[in-house]
């Protein structure tokens, strides 16, 4: 999740992130995350607005997601109130985020390493260990796909709208006088 002003106000147990409305339809609104940064350099790279395969803009496009009427109402507004370009704060449960990271990264890696160590012990060959690691990685991804589908079916991977982002900035200014 991106570093943002909203993080300062995020309640414990939730990760917040700022998104921008890119389309509003009758029963849902499409949202795009604002660029996340680990340093100022990444932020300026995104500011150029370059498009194409592998650019940050194309990655953000790929991460578009929709919220329904119920999620919008839960945040205190209705879908017709939203306009393209509006900025919203969305949140996801901390535990869900960590579980998702564990599923996507730790599980395939553990499978690959286990397979590599077993193959190395059995054959003593680096080549066999490498092949076993690749096979373990593939198997880990297979298990990850099933487990992630179960999590998604429970709704654990769905972000929900919390409030409009402008309110966050006002609150941040109140908390940090002089900044």
């Amino acid at each position: 999740m991106q570093e943002s002003a909203s993080q300062a106000c995020a309640p414990a147990g939730e990760q917040e992130s700022i998104v921008r409305v890119v389309a509003v339809e009758a029963d849902c609104a499409w949202l795009e995350p604002e660029q996340g940064t680990s340093c100022g350099g990444c932020a300026s790279a995104a500011a150029c607005g370059a498009k194409g395969i592998g650019t940050l803009a194309s990655r953000l496009e790929a991460r578009r997601f929709a919220i329904g009427r119920a999620s919008a109402r839960g945040a205190g507004f209705d879908l017709p109130d939203l306009r393209v370009g509006d900025r919203l704060v969305v949140a996801i449960d901390d535990r869900s985020l960590l579980q998702a990271a564990g599923l996507a990264y730790a599980l395939p890696l553990a499978a690959a390493l286990t397979a590599a160590i077993v193959a190395q012990e059995m054959s003593g060959s680096d080549g066999m260990a490498l092949l076993a690691a690749v096979a373990g990685l593939a198997a880990g991804f297979g298990v990850m796909k099933r487990a992630a589908a179960r999590m998604a079916a429970r709704g654990a991977l769905q972000s929900r709208a919390v409030r409009r982002a402008d309110a966050v900035h006002a609150l941040t200014r109140i908390h940090r006088p002089g900044s």
Binding site: M1, Q2, P33, G36, S38, C42, L56, R59, A62, R63, F65, I92, S96, L97, A100, A101, L103, A104, F141, M144, K145, A148, A149, M151, A152, L157, Q158, S159
Partner: peptide, 15 residues
């Protein structure tokens, strides 16, 4: 494999 997982975690990888 999991678009929902990608939506949640995608931001880490480019960094």
């Amino acid at each position: 494999l999991s678009p929902a997982l990608f939506q949640t975690l995608g931001i880490y990888l480019p960094l």
